[in-house]
Computed example of a mutant assay.
Amino acid sequence: MDTASFSGLIRNLIIIILAYYALKYIMRLLAPVIVQQVVKKASENMYQRQQDNFNQQQAKQEPQKQAPAEKKKVGEYIDFEEID
């Protein structure tokens, strides 16, 4: 059976600390690239949604642009005046 030793504890702590600082350094280098990709993807999604909304509005307005059907003329409008 292995027993825990003080030197093994120190070695593990040093490995954990070195891994933490290595990850911190790597993330400092990669963070701008990652953020740039996220912003680019978000702007593409926003542009696509804007285009979809614009196309939907155009589709709704197209039937309204058509000339209304001409109503049947029943007769002339006569304006009557009251006589006192």
Rank of each mutant, 00 (worst) to 15 (best):
S7W: 03
E76T: 00
Y25C: 12
Y25L: 14
V35P: 02
I83R: 08
Q48E: 15
Q48N: 15
N55Y: 12
L18Y: 11
Y47N: 07
E81G: 07
D2H: 11
L30F: 09
R28M: 05
R11E: 15
L29G: 02
G8M: 00
E76D: 10
S7L: 05
Y77K: 00
Q37R: 15
E62L: 07
L30S: 11
K65G: 06
Y20A: 08
L30N: 09
T3R: 11
G75W: 01
L29W: 01
P68D: 05
M1T: 04
F80E: 04
Q56R: 15
I10Y: 00
F6E: 08
A69M: 14
L9W: 04
L29V: 06
N12T: 12
I34D: 02
Y77S: 02
I16F: 09
L13I: 02
Q66D: 07
P63W: 02
Q61P: 03
A22G: 10
K65D: 12
K60A: 14
Q37G: 14
A42T: 01
L13Q: 03
R49E: 05
Q50Y: 13
M27Q: 12
L9R: 08
D52T: 13
A42Y: 06
K24I: 05
S43T: 06
E76S: 06
T3N: 09
Q48W: 11
K41A: 04
K60Q: 15
S5G: 00
Q66F: 02
S5Y: 05
G75H: 01
L29F: 03
L23Y: 14
Y20V: 06
K71P: 02
A22L: 11
I10C: 00
A67C: 07
Q51W: 12
K60G: 03
I34H: 06
Q61I: 11
F6G: 08
A19S: 15
L9F: 00
P32I: 01
Q37C: 13
P63M: 05
N55Q: 10
L30Q: 12
R28T: 03
A67Y: 06
Y21K: 09
F54P: 00
K24W: 09
K24S: 09
L13A: 10
Q58H: 10
V39W: 05
Y47E: 13
K24H: 07
Q66P: 01
K41F: 03
Q51F: 13
L13E: 00
E76W: 04
N53H: 12
S7V: 04
L13N: 01
M1Y: 08
R28G: 10
E82A: 01
V74I: 15
D79M: 13
K73V: 15
K40A: 13
Q61R: 13
L18K: 07
L18V: 13
Y77E: 06
A69K: 12
V33D: 06
A22S: 13
L18P: 01
K41Y: 06
A22Y: 09
Q61F: 13
Q57G: 12
E44N: 09
R49A: 04
K72T: 11
I15H: 14
Y21M: 08
A19F: 09
K72P: 01
I34W: 06
F80I: 04
A59N: 01
A67K: 07
P63L: 04
T3I: 10
Q37K: 15
L23H: 14
M1F: 10
R11D: 15
I83T: 10
E76R: 04
